[in-house]
Amino acid sequence: MTEYKLVVVGAGGVGKSALTIQLIQNHFVDEYDPTIEDSYRKQVVIDGETCLLDILDTAGQEEYSAMRDQYMRTGEGFLCVFAINNTKSFEDIHHYREQIKRVKDSEDVPMVLVGNKCDLPSRTVDTKQAQDLARSYGIPFIETSAKTRQGVDDAFYTLVREIRKHKEKMSKDGKKKKKKSKTKCVIM
């Protein structure tokens, strides 16, 4: 069974824990209790493949930012979460993405942009803004509501699919490099 290491990042209060708990335990946590770091595991079937999701729910508070490099190193894919009623959390996505790329030393890291709290009427981040940002990053965008469960499975499952595509691409690139290195030079 394939294991996928997913990391949920975003500013404090955007609903990272609520999304994760909704996926794992099928219930909505409405009281806000700032996370330092929590880890969850769940076995699911995605596109006919049974897999184990190892999900790291991270601290959004700035005082825990020193811990970010460590979990970013171990993560295979990242859910970059903002709240649709919090423009600052949307603007912060850029910083999370840049930090992930720096730590992973790669421009090509599996990510999904997630606009959470889409059940709320007080939207300050337009869907088109988020779609445009995701398009500019070359990553999928999904709106979710941890409260109603809308888009929750889709967000995590899409990230797994992005990781699969990335692994497939990397193995193809690896095979191309191996083929090239088999060419021999004969000096007579």
Rank of each mutant, 00 (worst) to 15 (best):
I46S: 14
Y32D: 04
G12R: 05
T2W: 07
E62F: 05
G10E: 01
Q43Y: 08
I55S: 08
E63V: 05
I55Y: 04
L23F: 13
D54H: 07
S17N: 01
V9F: 04
E37I: 04
V8W: 03
E37N: 03
V7K: 07
R41S: 13
V8P: 00
Q22M: 05
L56E: 03
S39E: 06
I21F: 14
D54I: 03
K42C: 08
I36N: 03
V45L: 12
D33T: 02
D57Y: 00
G12N: 11
I36H: 00
E63Y: 06
R41E: 11
K42S: 12
N26K: 12
L23Y: 13
L56G: 03
E37R: 00
I24K: 13
Y40G: 01
S17F: 00
N26D: 15
V29S: 11
Y40W: 03
T58V: 06
T2I: 08
Q25E: 15
L6N: 01
Y4P: 12
Y40M: 04
Y64T: 02
A18L: 02
L6W: 04
A18D: 06
E31S: 10
T20P: 03
D54W: 03
V9R: 01
E3H: 12
A18G: 13
R41P: 15
T35Y: 00
V8G: 04
I21A: 15
K42W: 07
Y4S: 12
Q61D: 15
S39I: 05
C51G: 10
L53N: 08
F28Y: 11
G48T: 09
D47V: 05
K5Y: 02
T50D: 10
Y4M: 15
V7D: 03
E63I: 04
A18W: 04
I55C: 09
T35S: 06
D30L: 10
D30G: 11
L52I: 13
I36G: 04
I24L: 14
V9D: 04
G60F: 00
Y32N: 05
V45P: 10
H27F: 12
G60M: 00
G13D: 13
T35F: 03
H27E: 15
E63P: 05
G48I: 05
V14E: 09
Y4K: 14
T50V: 12
I36Q: 03
V29R: 08
E31T: 08
V9Y: 03
V44R: 10
L23S: 15
G60Q: 01
Q61T: 12
S39V: 13
Y40A: 01
I55R: 00
E49Y: 07
S39N: 09
V29L: 13
E49F: 06
Q25G: 15
D47I: 03
G10V: 02
L6T: 06
L56R: 04
L52Y: 14
E37T: 02
T50I: 12
I21R: 14
S39H: 04
I36R: 01
L6Q: 02
L56T: 14
L6S: 03
L23R: 11
K42E: 12
V14G: 11
I24V: 10
Y32S: 05
L56M: 08
T20S: 12
A11F: 15
Y64E: 02
L53E: 08
V45G: 13
I24W: 05
E3Q: 10
T50E: 11
I36P: 02
I46R: 10
H27R: 07
V14Y: 06
K42N: 11
G48M: 06
D47W: 05
A18V: 06
D33H: 04
I46H: 10
G48D: 10
I55T: 13
Q61H: 12
I36V: 12
C51I: 15
T2V: 09
L52T: 15
K16T: 07
D47S: 08
C51W: 15
D30M: 09
F28A: 05
V29E: 14
Q25A: 11
V7Y: 06
K5R: 13
D57S: 04
T2F: 11
D33Y: 04
G13E: 14
D57F: 00
E49C: 07
D54G: 06
L52E: 15
A59H: 02
A11V: 13
T20M: 07
I36L: 13
L19A: 15
K5I: 02
E63T: 07
D38M: 01
D57H: 00
Q61M: 10
V9W: 01
I21L: 15
D33P: 00
N26E: 14
L6V: 11
I55V: 12
Y32F: 05
C51F: 12
L6C: 08
R41N: 13
G60T: 00
S17H: 00
Y64K: 00
T35E: 00
G12Y: 08
Q22S: 11
Q43C: 10
E63L: 04
Q25T: 11
E3M: 08
T50R: 12
A18T: 07
I21P: 02
P34N: 04
E63Q: 09
Y32R: 05
I36T: 05
S39L: 12
I24G: 10
L19S: 15
Y4D: 12
Y40D: 01
T50C: 09
F28P: 04
V9H: 05
G15S: 00
R41V: 10
E49N: 12
I46L: 13
T2G: 14
L52C: 14
A59M: 00
G15W: 00
G60P: 01
G48E: 11
A59K: 01
A11G: 09
D54Y: 05
L23K: 11
T50A: 11
A18R: 05
E62L: 05
F28I: 06
D47F: 05
V45Y: 09
Q25D: 15
I55W: 05
I24F: 11
L6E: 00
D30A: 11
K42Q: 15
E49P: 08
I24N: 13
E49G: 08
E49A: 09
T2A: 14
Q61I: 07
V44W: 08
G15N: 01
L19P: 01
T35L: 00
T50L: 10
T58Q: 00
L23N: 15
I46D: 14
G10I: 00
T50H: 12
V45F: 10
S39R: 08
A11I: 15
E37K: 04
D38K: 01
D38I: 01
D54M: 04
L6I: 14
A11K: 05
C51S: 10
V8C: 08
Q22L: 04
Y40R: 03
V7C: 13
I24P: 02
T58R: 00
P34F: 10
A59W: 00
I36A: 10
G15K: 02
Y32H: 12
V8S: 04
D30Y: 09
G15I: 00
K5F: 02
T35C: 00
R41G: 13
I36D: 05
Y32Q: 05
S39M: 09
C51D: 12
